[in-house]
Design a protein around this nucleic acid. Structure first.
Lengths: 156, 156
DNA sequence: CCGGCTTTGTTGAACGTTCAACTATTGCCG
DNA sequence: CGGCAATAGTTGAACGTTCAACAAAGCCGG
């Protein structure tokens, strides 16, 4: 038999909408700041960050896609742009002839170093400054739970 | 004097990344589900929802933009597409000759009614089912705090 | 009532993402 | 070894968003 939809009760509704509003506003704000101050969207900033943290400042496209939570296609397009900006370079992978390795250039690192302080300020100002330490802790647990839950039963 | 950047401590770092991962994964998942089941992105679904809740199922473009947290431009483009799909219609505003009123069509309402159950299931499954009642409450407070904080000192 | 300032909404171009199709290579199982 | 599914990455088209520029109408002080 067809199961009746369990609609959201008023509290759930309110939570869901507040979450939507807040996360959208937060992301939009940080995106706009980053675009203004560093000329790149947040997604591209994240790519540079991940590369900067990797040994040799280099990562397989595949791993980079995994780490940044983006599709291979998205990363490919992004890499093309980042390469055109001179911030990364792509090399053939020595151990897998199908593979490519993205490498952060000096210029890319410098751009990142220039953008990071402002961005961190933004994250602090718009996120951490607004919350109590207890709330930060709650947010971490909630986020980790959700992330686990979503990657388990996954993209289906 | 130039103030040294206050970097994120390890806990904050972890929280920030978990939040990024979780909210991106959640939105991506719901977006994909909605695209698959109803042929529209989540942003457009929200527009239809807001219209369906308004008296007369109609709203000024301006208010609609406010409610959905989108720019006027974004809403204009979205409205053009929604109109092309036959889900909304635009009329001149009787009281302000500059204004336009977006009206949900019968077809739009029907599409929304068809999409809603599946979407609500998705929200329940991917968000509420993963969290304890206490966490849902925490998430609501956190989100409302953030939303307030972001609209106060605002888009600057 | 006139001049300028604001508000409303649209437009086009540039950008970023998605999706499906495609190539090239690798791994695997008989 | 030979065949074939799986994996790595790219591509182009369609879509959605942003940004700056714009037209049209309202508002408001003199």
């Amino acid at each position: 038999m067809v199961v009746m939809t369990r609609w959201l009760d008023p509290d759930e509704q309110r939570t869901w909408r507040a979450f939507l509003t807040a996360s959208r506003a937060l992301m939009d704000t940080l995106d706009r700041e980053l675009q203004r101050d560093a000329g790149m969207p947040h997604a591209y900033y994240e790519i540079l960050v991940r590369l900067s943290e990797a040994p040799g400042r280099r990562l397989r496209m595949s791993e980079l896609a995994e780490l940044t939570g983006s599709s291979r296609s998205r990363l490919s397009h992004a890499a093309a742009r980042l390469e055109a900006s001179g911030w990364i370079r792509r090399e053939d992978c020595p151990t897998d002839r199908r593979g490519q390795v993205a490498v952060l250039t000096g210029e890319g690192f410098a751009t990142l170093a220039g953008a990071a302080p402002g961005h961190v300020e933004g994250v602090r100002r718009h996120l951490f400054d607004a919350l109590s330490p207890a709330q930060v802790d709650q947010l971490r647990r909630i986020s980790e739970t959700l992330a686990d839950h979503l990657t388990d039963s996954g993209p289906n």
